[in-house]
Design a protein around this nucleic acid. Structure first.
Ligand SMILES: [Mn+2]
Ligand SMILES: [Mn+2]
Ligand SMILES: [Zn+2]
Ligand SMILES: [Zn+2]
Lengths: 143, 143
DNA sequence: AATGCAATTGCAAATCGTTTGCAATAAAAA
DNA sequence: TTTTTATTGCAAACGATTTGCAATTGCATT
């Protein structure tokens, strides 16, 4: 069980390889994703992008996120509540603990849990394609 | 790790205790929930209810599900994709494996995983309020 | 059984996050 | 540069769920 720190992927190279155009809105959005290590939603990305170039639209943010997701460059999470949240896909696999009071997202990883999941699926005659493990909790009150 | 079978809760008694009225639409919906052991969504419940009483509206289905959820009588799941799915809340806790080809939902439970989750949250300084563990997989091809 | 009244209903319209059609714009190939 | 075509912003559409409201109904009271 341990935390993660992600580092800078070269999204532009990925996009180029995918044969799509490097536009100004995309460059701005990629910049934001690169220098972010939390789990922003589309609206947050939109606002940060607007600060750089106020002509960028929310549609373009959504379209870009979908594109990056299809390229496997980012992950989309549907935590409880409203909007989807995104994060870079470069680091190793991890799951999330969500602070239900603040909305903070804490990353963790457990080889033991991952292995048990495999074991369970296998026993049921399945291969896991992907999974979702989310803990919703609140900071322990110093008793 | 094992499967579950749920059995018939007395929703009407629960409603009565909660001080709400036992109306015809509610009775129909409760009947459907009682005799169902899968994880239907609101639309499915609505259709089954319509078959009994075609005047029941989808709004009422949603309102009733929300009511039952607040009473703790049912659980609402937000699996991947479209609509929320519901199930009776009486049985023991379990998690779900979703067949990504058929949409089938298979229930399982692992004390080991549950314990590990607790351990992880504790190490991070949190108390788990609830969690969500969903495995998305596909039937193993008999090699 | 008839009354009174608040809770519940069906309906249509609203909401929210996300997607999409389309005409205008801008990348990048020529 | 010009041409070609992907990408954009905008507004409108979307799908699931919720909500306002007037009409109805459960049910506690006579
Ligand atoms: Mn993460
Ligand atoms: Mn279940
Ligand atoms: Zn995991
Ligand atoms: Zn569990």
């Amino acid at each position: 069980m341990n935390q993660h720190a992600s580092h800078k992927p070269d999204y532009e190279k990925e996009l180029r390889r995918a044969g799509v155009r490097i536009t100004r809105p995309r460059r701005v959005i990629l910049g934001i994703l690169t220098e972010t290590d939390d789990h922003p939603d589309a609206m947050e990305i939109f606002q940060r992008a607007s600060a750089v170039d106020s002509s960028i639209s929310l549609s373009t943010v959504y379209r870009t996120m979908k594109l990056l997701e299809e390229l496997g460059a980012i992950h989309r999470h549907a935590f409880e509540g409203g909007r989807a949240r995104f994060e870079q896909a470069d680091g190793d696999h991890h799951d999330h603990l969500i602070d239900i009071d603040t909305g903070d997202v804490i990353e963790f990883h457990s080889d033991r849990i991952e292995a048990l999941q495999e074991e369970i699926a296998r026993a049921l005659g399945y291969d896991i394609v992907h999974h979702r493990l989310e803990l919703y909790g609140r900071k322990r009150r110093k008793s």
